[in-house]
Amino acid sequence: MTSIGLPHFLIVGAALFALGMITVVTRRNAVGILMGVELILNAANVNFIAFNHYVEGPGKVTGQVFSIFVIVLAAAEAAVGLAIVLAIYQTFRTIDVQETDTLRQ
């Protein structure tokens, strides 16, 4: 058995991305969809930091800088997204994304 290497982390990232995508695609609850987006962003972060560690080499931190930016933007996205969900709930009294289709008509 070989030691832990880059592919192990990439596979974990792939699994996180796929599960996040399943969450986004199948959920009807808007908050659940936002959770899926967070999972996808985490998958991207795992890949950034794994490549930073194994490919970019010692002393360089570009991948980690990008992961910090992703974390910051995920926080901003969560704040704005959940505020939008609350506004939708105040307007429609539901957060089922199947039923909030006013713009479609």
Partner: peptide, 18 residues
């Protein structure tokens, strides 16, 4: 509160992706 739409489709999509 957390119903699924099309779990088989989503699962297949996820399996192909991973």
């Amino acid at each position: 509160t957390n119903a699924h739409l099309a779990l088989p489709v989503g699962g297949a999509l996820g399996a192909v992706t991973v």
